[in-house]
Write a protein that binds this DNA or RNA. Structure first.
Length: 565
RNA sequence: UGGGGAGUCGUCCAACGGCAGGACGGCAGACUCUGGAUCUGCUUAUAGGGGUUCGAAUCCUCUCUCCCCAGCCA
């Protein structure tokens, strides 16, 4: 795994460096990645993963994987499995340090008893509704619960019986006794434990009371000897509570540091909305290649290297920000440019007959597998009288700056010959069905001995040997860079891109692709990077377009279209 | 109108009292058997007003704007 030392520093590293200098935590650095196993990880989590594991590595410290599983009604083993897989795939190793907050339930219970004894916590019989009313508002202080001053003995007794299962869900809570008039609502006697007669994916039915995040998280960090507990901005005003519990308990006290979560243009990053996309049939599942989930990106063909690189490039700060999707695309192109084998594939085929090429003849031409890496070698590509080229590569009436094939024009077929279009064949509807071209035998391999130049080089596939395939072209899931920005009264689904998936079923691939296996990535020359989908089979290969190549001509055309409208 | 945060190129991140810099994007150009890659150049920013200072993005002050918080979710 590479995490170059050139990785730019950030304010968190600065704080840690300072802590090391002053001898806080004896110079140790120990972080954790603490997902709740209630859904699949997305690229926003990737930022946190890279940050936490990256910092540990940079300071030769450790990073734990810890599941924050304090809410049995939402959490499932299925998610812990997928999270483990995703973190591992991202290239990080927690070694033997995979923990669960639920591992610490007994200790948390004991600490809670301790807080009750110290008069710092009490059992409250208010209903959820009453608690809400008593909490006050953003501008008005709260009211103290009438149970706030009940005796330590009574609270102790009640808390014990809560654990024993004597009370129904929601009937009582354990609350911290802090300050109902605090400007910080989190400090208005927050709930520490609630009664939940629910089966937990790890502890089964052992518990019917479960700790709340604020109480569980700081204690988990403390138990694991975490030095720097890195979380997102919305927890900033929970920090006083984090500190309060640890101070009251007088136990080892990590430092919480908050950073801005990742947002990406043209996509969303919320579990709730992912579910709406999946349930609404807008995507095919959590691992749909259009989803910003790690599993979606993986299926799409993104590499861990590219995602890690993105995380490094975007930096870490406290300001809310939206990273341009173009940067993610840059990262995957950069990675795949070095690694992906080049191959020819015609997505939207147009038949070409080389009328002066002998019938029934096939020859093998040499092609380079990766011009960026000569070590990847060469391959043979069959050439014959009938070929396919890309429909887009021919224009009967070529516009200005269109260099590709047109009537009477000569272009190069990559690694093959120069050809000239001599005739356009159409059907009764006027649709072009095939092209007749002549080739120049002297240009075999793609160079002309007389030194004449052509302005375009086209990719092509020999018809007789072509492999048929399905190719899925993806576009952004949303039309607007900010999916939240929709018409008054409409929700984010109104902005879904209806054309985020285009399925092509008649694609022609060069025979080298016949035995491509799921997960393999290729560059289809001139069109983009593609990855063999998990739906793929020998009978019917399926490819996902990971990202297009930069396309100057497409940009020119797009510019013209916009000028006209 | 309570509390907590944040404001630097279009976007993201630097600059920690001393020439506002990098990356992506965009725009030009060079090169090219991928209109790819590569290379070169250009473009554009310190929210606003006061103050301190030889010197302010940075320190002080006032104002403005944006984000988060009223789950027995995390």
């Amino acid at each position: 795994m590479t995490m170059p030392d050139s990785a730019p520093s950030n304010f968190i590293q600065d704080l840690i460096t300072e802590d090391i200098k002053t001898g806080k935590y004896e110079g140790r650095v120990h972080t954790r990645f603490p997902p709740e196993p209630n859904g699949y990880l997305h690229i926003g989590h990737a930022k946190s993963i890279c940050l936490n594991f990256g910092i540990a590595k940079k300071f030769t410290g450790l990073c734990n994987l810890r599941f924050d599983d304090t809410n049995p009604t939402k959490e499932e083993v299925e998610y812990v499995e997928s999270i483990r897989e995703d973190v591992r795939w991202m290239g990080f190793d927690w070694e033997d340090r995979m923990y669960f907050a639920s591992d610490y339930f007994e200790q948390m219970y004991q600490y809670a008893v301790q807080l009750i004894k110290a008069g710092k916590a009490y059992v409250c019989d208010l209903t959820a509704d009453e608690i809400r009313q008593y909490r006050g508002t953003l501008t008005a202080p709260g009211k103290e619960s009438l149970y706030r001053n009940r005796s330590v003995e009574e609270s102790l007794n009640l808390f014990e019986r809560m654990r024993a299962g004597e009370f129904p869900d929601g009937s009582r809570t354990l609350r911290a006794r802090i300050d109902m008039s605090s400007g910080n609502i989190n400090m208005r006697d927050p709930v520490m434990y609630r009664i939940l007669h629910a089966e937990h994916h790890r502890t089964g039915t052992k518990w019917c009371i479960y700790p709340m995040y604020d109480y569980a998280h700081c204690i988990s960090d403390s138990i694991e000897g975490i030095t720097h507990s890195i979380c997102t901005l919305e927890f900033e005003d929970h920090r006083p509570l984090y500190d309060w519990f640890l101070d009251q308990l007088d136990i080892y006290h990590p430092r919480q540091i908050e950073f801005a979560r990742l947002n990406l243009s043209y996509t969303i990053m919320s579990k709730r909305k992912f579910i709406q996309l999946v349930d609404g049939g807008h995507v095919r599942g959590w691992d749909d290649p259009r989803m910003p989930t790690i599993s979606g990106l993986r299926r799409r063909g993104y590499t861990p290297e590219a995602i890690r690189n993105l995380c490094e490039r975007i930096g870490v700060a406290k300001r809310d920000s939206v990273v341009d999707m173009a940067l993610l695309e840059y990262c995957i192109r950069e990675d795949l440019n070095k690694k992906a084998r080049r191959v020819m594939a015609v997505l939207k085929p147009l038949k070409v007959v080389i009328i002066n090429y002998p019938e029934g003849t096939t020859e093998e031409l040499d092609a380079i597998n990766n011009p960026e890496d000569p070590g990847m070698g060469m391959r043979k590509v069959p050439f014959s009288r009938v070929l396919y080229i890309e429909r887009e590569d021919f224009r009967e009436a070529p516009p200005k700056q269109f260099f590709r094939l047109a009537p009477g024009r000569e272009v190069r077929l990559r690694y093959a010959y120069y050809i000239t279009c001599v005739n356009v064949v159409k059907d009764t509807d006027g649709e072009i069905t095939e092209l007749h071209c002549t080739y120049d035998p002297a240009t075999r391999g793609g160079d002309s001995p007389d030194g004449r130049k052509v302005k375009a080089t086209l990719h092509w596939v020999s018809a007789a040997q072509a492999v048929e395939a399905e190719v899925r072209l993806y576009d952004y899931l949303f039309l607007n860079p900010d999916p939240e920005e929709v018409e008054e009264g409409k929700d984010f689904r109104f902005g879904i891109n209806p054309n985020s998936l285009e399925t092509l079923t008649t694609c022609k691939l060069e025979p080298a692709l016949a035995d491509a296996t799921p997960g393999e990535r290729y560059q289809f020359e001139r069109t983009g990077y593609f990855c063999v989908d998990t739906d793929s089979s020998m009978e019917k290969p399926v490819f996902n377009r990971i990202v297009t190549l930069k396309d100057t001509w497409a940009k020119i055309e797009k510019g013209r279209k916009e000028e006209r409208s």
